[in-house]
Nucleic acid binder design. Structure first.
Lengths: 159, 159
DNA sequence: GCCCATATTGCAACGAGTCGCAAGTGCACC
DNA sequence: GGTGCACTTGCGACTCGTTGCAATATGGGC
């Protein structure tokens, strides 16, 4: 999938998140620290940006081929509950996970060229505010995904 | 799934769409009129509002138990190409089809109580306009799905 | 009314993701 | 260092949806 994310696509960069304390946080919630979770967390700690569930499973499998999908998805749920992750659905409906603390943001997806951009809070203010005003609805920006046609493709089609 | 759609949940109501002419429209595009398509179109003609692919398959099966899923999905694609349908992805990422010509609209989904509301063009103007201005991006309203927490659930949580 | 090009179907395999349940294991407590 | 509760895992079955391919059927042309 072609991406045009504004995040700095760092690879082995040091994690910014609270990964070192995950074990602690799990424990204070009565949750457990298992090898499987440790592996997924390690993978996530080296992930800066956006991944699909399937990608995460694949990465885990390069380390431990015995990785079971359902375990990964369940751990992802747990981690999301802890606020370390959030997920949304891409233009094709597939799950997409976002590691924190990349600032909360939504996505803009061009149906034509497949490129995805991030929408930061200030840009999304229009939606968030209007929904809050008109309906008292609190928009979950991290889950927002807007599809349509980007400027480039719009011009190409017009021309 | 609990719904609070603003559409009048009519059941056997007369179709508003261009269903009578579908055959004609198919033909002019070099496409064919088959029993399977006829069945799906009949089901759609009596559907006013929103359905998932799985629901459509089930309804087709009540008429013809031999209905094949892939055929339904492919026909749905064709019909969408003809502009008779549009689809988006619900809060859970599942496909959701909208029969036209219910005015183009997006959806607002409360993660807490599961209710879904429609967002009409005027309400969505904020997003559409701001994306158009800042990025030249043409938002596809029919595919827009905004998640978050509704007024009722926000209050309940605060209280 | 028949023929043929090709649009469609049916099928089977596959991929993403979810769920229930029995077996296994972390870790708090003693 | 042992014990036991209950959180987790692994597994198998299942749902929704997609795709490739061979077989079939539509419908325009003669």
């Amino acid at each position: 999938m072609l991406r045009a994310m504004s995040s700095n696509g760092s690879h082995g960069a040091a994690p910014m998140a609270d990964w070192p304390n995950v074990r602690q946080r799990l424990r204070t919630h009565g949750l457990r620290w298992t090898p499987q979770r440790r592996l997924l967390i390690e993978v996530l700690a080296h992930t800066d940006g956006h991944v699909t569930g399937a990608e995460l499973i694949e990465r885990c499998r390069t380390v431990d081929p015995a990785t079971i999908p359902s375990t990964v998805y369940r751990t992802l749920d747990v981690l999301e509950g802890l606020g370390l992750l959030s997920h949304s659905h891409g233009a094709d409906g597939r799950e997409e996970f976002h590691v924190q603390p990349v600032a909360t943001h939504g996505h803009l997806h061009c149906d034509s060229c497949g490129t995805t951009w991030e929408i930061m809070a200030d840009e999304a203010a229009a939606v968030v505010d209007s929904m809050q005003r008109s309906r008292g609805f609190a928009v979950d920006l991290s889950h927002l995904s807007v599809a349509g046609r980007c400027a480039g493709c719009s011009q190409a089609r017009a021309g």
